[in-house]
Write a protein that binds this DNA or RNA. Sequence first.
DNA 1: AATATATATCGGTTATTCCCGATATGCCAA
DNA 2: TTGGCATATCGGGAATAACCGATATATATT
Lengths: 99, 99
Amino acid sequence: MDQVEVFKALSNKTRLQILSWLKDPEVHFPAQAQNGYANGVCVGQIHAKSSLTQSTVSEYLSSLQRAGLISSTRVGQWTYYKRNEEAFKALSKLIEADI
Amino acid sequence: MDQVEVFKALSNKTRLQILSWLKDPEVHFPAQAQNGYANGVCVGQIHAKSSLTQSTVSEYLSSLQRAGLISSTRVGQWTYYKRNEEAFKALSKLIEADI
DNA sequence: AATATATATCGGTTATTCCCGATATGCCAA
DNA sequence: TTGGCATATCGGGAATAACCGATATATATT
């Protein structure tokens, strides 16, 4: 876990917002219900809720993934992203004990 | 607690290093022993251990303070900085529960 | 094969961060 | 009050981040 990379990924309002949306996908992405939430939520749904362009949202998701905070699954033409809860637990402990 | 500001403050190798030094001032700033560590460590000591200029270190300390992660006490011509441990606890809990 | 849809990537503009050297400010001592 | 030391602030150059529009890539449909 590259600490600086993680904190940089968290240093942006929109990226924090995305993480918060992904915490309750049923609430924030009801349109996804038909496909289930096991793999997470696809980029288009996240983009639809954001006020940024598709390319920016895609970049932001990549950066969150590089930081290890979310993971992705490709299914057909869709890429689903979901939170990596272990990473958040680890980060919480890191801050509590090491930083 | 402005989350983005806090994460930005933590998004830098040197600033993380300073926080880590301040965690064990007795170990990392033995020269400060004569004055005690109650108020923390003065800027000059921190600067001496860093490989950056005095002005940069001073800016970094200000940004950590604006984020609420450290606090300062002025004594004579010296400014002492120390960690604000409550802020780290709060951040740890925030990440565990809210982010 | 042609077309449509979802996502990723590329090139660019503007804003922000990273650092520096120079200088200002504040405090103390002679 | 002059000078010296500790720290803060200011102005700036270079690197990185924040976005965007356009385009490329991958998959699916007809």
